[in-house]
Simulated scan of single mutants.
Amino acid sequence: MTNRTLALRKIASTPVELTELGFGASVIGNLYRVTPAQDAEAAVDAAWEAGIRYFDTAPHYGLGLSERRLGAALRHRPRDAYMVSSKVGRLLVPNEDRRGVDSEGFVVRDDLRRQWDFSRDGVLRSIEETLERTGLDRLDVVYLHDPDDHWRQAAEEAMPALAELRDQGVIGAIGAGMNQSAMLARFLRETAADLVMLAGRYTLLDQSALDDVLPAARELGKSVVAVGVFNSGLLSRDRPAAGMKYDYQDAPSDLVARALAIAEVCEAYGTTLPAAAIAFPLAHPSIINVTLGMRTPDQVTRNTELHARRIHGGLWEELRDRGLIRPDVPAESDGRRSPGCL
């Protein structure tokens, strides 16, 4: 068993440290297609061997399958050696209208269904059920999961419940995870959240988080975990092409062209588009982690190799000068980060 770990970063104002690269366990919950159980376990094992010590899951992912598989794969590891996050807001309840297969993108039986619940009781029940599915004794980080349409209950009931658990030492850190950035800024400014999980809004193609959540995090000294950094695939290959996905839809031609232009600049600086896509958010002073979905050991190997590539700080300046990223991308991005920049 290796003791090597990737670089650690602390969630501000908490004792919790995350490796710079995290293992996103949604795909081992059979997202879009079946992942054999042995492949899921092998992917977690490969992540461990690569030095990843932060693992993210949720009840939503495969109607509990991701949590069960992740917990089983980590069970023989020393508990103090890794961090696990899960999420609340979707309870899993018996499904009386079964059609055979889940309708929300996971290839699993639909014996259960998701029920929105950001009440205090719902939060406590969700955490208890996650601990049962994973077999873990505790969760290190808990996020409110996609509370877009539930601000009031999430902010007034769920977050105070999580804060109480954190203050009792039951949870290490608390936050919210969403595909939008504006409400995440509200969670940082108006609630007891320590961090947020930002999906797809601070990438090489979309820096809209510079308008709200990232300034809030810097001002308040709070932290951000970045996910969706490939924008559903458009930034995942060295040379983007028509037919690739952007934010779960077919990518518009203008975005494909811009991604290709960014890729060409990356090549001129001796790197690749996906390597730069991972390094870019980590160069922001408030972003402490990039978490990527990893279905197989080969994907783990590729992602950890991409993360390890050194990026010349001049790349970001060149992209700004060419108008390919926003001019207000922080100057700290230049040359900041180990191992990401030169």
Rank of each mutant, 00 (worst) to 15 (best):
119 S>W: 10
96 E>H: 15
103 S>H: 12
271 T>P: 07
331 A>D: 11
142 V>I: 14
103 S>P: 06
238 D>N: 13
209 A>W: 08
235 L>M: 06
19 T>E: 07
44 V>K: 03
27 V>H: 12
19 T>C: 08
4 R>L: 14
290 V>Y: 00
333 S>M: 02
152 R>M: 00
82 Y>K: 05
213 V>G: 11
269 Y>Q: 08
338 S>F: 12
188 L>E: 12
44 V>N: 02
29 G>A: 06
62 G>Q: 12
204 L>I: 12
63 L>C: 01
269 Y>N: 10
144 L>P: 04
51 G>A: 10
260 L>I: 01
51 G>Q: 09
289 N>F: 01
288 I>Q: 00
320 R>W: 09
305 E>V: 05
200 G>Y: 07
96 E>S: 14
338 S>H: 14
36 P>N: 15
274 P>T: 08
302 R>D: 06
283 A>W: 06
292 L>G: 01
233 G>L: 00
337 R>Q: 13
173 A>I: 12
312 H>T: 09
187 F>K: 02
296 T>L: 13
209 A>M: 07
331 A>Y: 14
268 A>T: 10
83 M>R: 14
4 R>F: 09
114 R>K: 14
101 V>P: 04
31 L>W: 11
270 G>I: 13
125 R>K: 15
208 S>C: 06
156 E>W: 04
170 V>P: 03
9 R>W: 05
78 P>M: 00
73 A>H: 05
29 G>K: 05
32 Y>A: 09
38 Q>C: 05
74 L>V: 02
100 G>F: 12
213 V>L: 13
138 R>D: 14
215 P>D: 11
90 R>P: 00
78 P>C: 03
61 Y>P: 12
146 D>L: 05
84 V>M: 00
3 N>L: 03
142 V>P: 01
268 A>L: 03
194 D>G: 11
276 A>F: 11
55 F>H: 06
325 I>T: 14
223 S>K: 01
12 A>R: 01
209 A>G: 04
185 A>H: 08
72 A>N: 11
301 T>V: 06
249 Q>F: 02
121 D>G: 15
112 L>C: 01
250 D>V: 10
103 S>G: 10
261 A>F: 03
94 P>G: 07
304 T>E: 10
320 R>G: 11
261 A>V: 02
135 G>F: 05
7 A>E: 13
144 L>N: 00
128 E>G: 12
218 R>A: 15
166 R>P: 02
166 R>W: 03
256 V>H: 02
41 E>K: 10
217 A>M: 00
190 E>P: 04
239 R>Y: 03
157 E>T: 02
216 A>R: 03
34 V>R: 06
37 A>N: 01
305 E>K: 15
